[in-house]
Amino acid sequence: MARVVVDVMPKPEILDVQGQAVSRALTRIGVSGIEVRQGKHFELEVDDSVDDETLHRIAGDLLANPVIEDWKVTRL
């Protein structure tokens, strides 16, 4: 078994309203100068028979929506 991480982030050109809201909340705890973008982090326990091509396929077909999100697959 291998551990694989898939990180999914809104594309840079997509307005990330959740990240903006978090950024604004930071100023309420007295921290300024931080801009947040919010994404998703998936941890996969992967059988050794699953190849990289399959991992990229599931990332692009299901874990991320390529219309609005970028993704990165990392084998740990």
């Binding site: 309203v17 809201a21 609005i68």
Partner: peptide, 17 residues
Amino acid sequence: LCEADLLPGALTRNEKL
């Protein structure tokens, strides 16, 4: 229908949440 690729584009969080 957008997720199924029957229609173009995507629906995202409302501007003001």
